Computed example of a mutant assay.
Amino acid sequence: MKNSRFVSTPAYDERLTVPLRWWVQGVMLLAFIWFITVFWVGPTLASGITAAGCALFVLAMVAYGNAKITVAGGELQAGTARIEARFLGEAVALDETDARHLAGRDADARAYLLLRPYLKRAVRVTIDDPADPAPYWLLFTRHPVALAKTVNALRASL
């Protein structure tokens, strides 16, 4: 029997990839590293050092930008965390200011946070599970209104 989350089409699916400017800045940093090291160790070793740095950089960017938010199969998945729809409370789309405050000065230490510094807006999803210590999930996203509508629609379908 197949798992239902793989059978159904996701109602919402977003990968939180890093922005293009991070890639450009990383390439510029790697070029600078090559330029500095070529005078100290020669072009062959400098190229090897830069290639190793390039591999680490690509791995870091892909791993960090691999976080995903999905609503499918009766559950919300954000990063590595999952929660069934029956435990979801109201989802509210937050503007830049409210998201920054809820991730900072107004944050609850028990909350589940999926933060990305290159995203400015978020969705707050209240958790209605007495066994779960997290009072809410704060999910930074590129499309907060669409995510909030999808989570609220999932709740209403129960």
Rank of each mutant, 00 (worst) to 15 (best):
W137F: 05
W23E: 08
T97H: 09
L102E: 02
A46K: 06
A11N: 09
G73D: 01
R21E: 08
N3K: 09
A78H: 02
V27W: 14
D132A: 12
T80M: 09
S157Q: 01
K149W: 00
H101V: 09
A60E: 06
L29I: 12
A153Q: 14
A67V: 04
I69S: 03
A111Y: 07
R82G: 09
T80F: 12
L115P: 03
N66F: 04
G53H: 02
V41S: 11
A85N: 08
L29V: 09
T44H: 12
V7Q: 13
I83L: 11
V7W: 11
G48D: 07
A103P: 01
A63F: 15
P117M: 00
Y64R: 02
V7P: 04
A51P: 10
V7H: 08
D98W: 10
I49V: 13
V92S: 08
A78Y: 03
Y12D: 09
T70R: 14
P10R: 03
L139S: 01
P144A: 00
E14R: 02
L76W: 06
E75H: 12
A109G: 15
A156Q: 03
V125L: 04
A78W: 01
L102G: 03
D95Y: 03
G104N: 06
T37N: 14
A55M: 14
S4K: 10
A81H: 10
P130Q: 09
D106S: 12
D13K: 08
A67Y: 10
L30V: 04
G79E: 01
